[in-house]
Write a protein that binds this DNA or RNA. Structure first.
Lengths: 245, 245
DNA sequence: GCGATCAATATACACTTGTATTTATAGTTG
DNA sequence: CAACTATAAATACAAGTGTATATTGATCGC
């Protein structure tokens, strides 16, 4: 029965998202650098360049170690043609992180779909997160890696995505409190703790194989339950203290 | 009264550590690369090179972006002299991470000293951790940053240090259970959750100013309490289930 | 059909990088 | 003191980098 709390909690905490910004950033980048409203015909698109960059990033290679020429070579264009799409490698990286954010929201949406079929929302959410980690597009991996490395712009982009995730989760915690009567101690803090924990566990799953990753999923689920239980217990105690006073 | 649990928990969870390996790694590195038992006289030591590297690493620059020549320049030696001390920049990086591990144990020791004077062990431990983050030697910063970036060797070195931290914490959780009767649900998992959370929060504190960092410390303390409360509640429920069966 | 236009390439240049080889220098030892 | 030796510096080189400038080649409006 408690499980239902978690179901609604995590899985739906990811809730409405999606489709807010779409392909805006990449498009704007392109039009800015080109400075023209109508591009004649570009055989290699900005997306192709981003794909080339991703394909160069191994399991643990940071974007900051990519060179402009290397990316251009992988995409099959002359080095200078890179400038038609991005001013910098940094600019491409920011676009990559934006795409990773979209990927993250895809995770959320997928978790919601699974929710209707399975039992535990925690499980399905965490599993969806981990699945996305080793999907074909490795955007989520990249996002996690560039969290601590990279210049200001990267980290801001990453932070934006995580904060977004966090706020959705907090809103859902508050909503859940009204529905079920199980209060959460400090919803914003609880959401932050859960988010950071999932991200940290996900990052450490980057190296590992399938079965170790499954183990990690189980661990993460239990950890989240601990936080939820603790938060609810502290909420209950806080109200009791207030009553007795 | 509950606070005393936490006091013993976190602060002492860091317990005995220290002085296990000392300066071994750096020394061995040097003797291997030099291949000689008695160095004539080297005005610039391996430690000087490591210091130079650290001074080059800004707030968010990864070690993998340092060039051999750059480090040598900063240390004031000829590029080729670098080889007298390390074979690679990678080798220097591993030595740096070892040093960071020692720094981490220093944090622990400091937390234990504070413990005898103050009230909350959680607070003093977290504060010690954060203090170490912006101390003169930025080894802890480096360790956190290289956690996700860098080659195999780096991440293994980082993992070693964190696992060590984790195991100490788990042992202390188990010990606490016998002393106070407050059981912990899965001590190893609880220790892992707390460790990862503190590390994640610490990493995100890298950017921020003093007052924001103080806020982060407060948040981290509450988060840890949530985990502890949840773990204890789940332990209690588990035993109750076993009894009623 | 034909200049105009602009995306894509080619060439060029001034750097930086890692390292191999050579030269000078200072410390130890006979 | 002189001869030796290990070390630090100097020089050199091939490779790779970001970008400025010049060149091609296709597409479109007239």
């Amino acid at each position: 029965m408690y499980i239902y709390l978690y179901i609604r909690l995590l899985a739906a905490g990811l809730h409405c998202l999606g489709l807010s910004r779409g392909k805006v950033s990449v498009k704007s980048v392109e039009s800015v650098s080109a400075g023209v409203e109508k591009a004649r015909k570009s055989q290699v698109t900005a997306q192709d360049l981003m794909d080339a960059a991703v394909s160069l990033l191994g399991a643990h290679r940071s974007v900051s170690t990519l060179s402009l020429r290397e990316i251009a070579r992988e995409a099959g264009i002359a080095p200078n043609s890179f400038y038609r799409h991005f001013r910098d490698v940094d600019e491409l990286t920011v676009a990559l992180i934006d795409q990773a954010g979209r990927s993250l929201r895809g995770v959320v949406r997928e978790a919601r779909q699974r929710l209707s079929l399975e039992r535990s929302g925690i499980r399905s959410s965490v599993e969806a997160f981990m699945d996305q980690l080793d999907s074909d597009d490795r955007y989520l991996q990249i996002l996690l890696r560039e969290m601590s490395t990279g210049s200001e712009a990267f980290r801001h982009a990453v932070d934006r995505e995580l904060t977004y995730f966090e706020e959705e989760l907090r809103d859902e915690l508050v909503r859940m409190e009204q529905l079920t009567g199980h209060a959460t101690y400090e919803p914003a803090l609880t959401a932050k703790a859960i988010t950071r924990l999932v991200v940290a566990m996900g990052a450490s799953a980057n190296d590992q194989g399938a079965e170790q990753r499954r183990e990690l999923v189980e661990q993460t689920i239990v950890m989240i339950r601990m936080i939820m239980q603790g938060s609810q217990a502290m909420a209950k105690r806080a109200t009791q203290d207030a009553d007795s006073r």
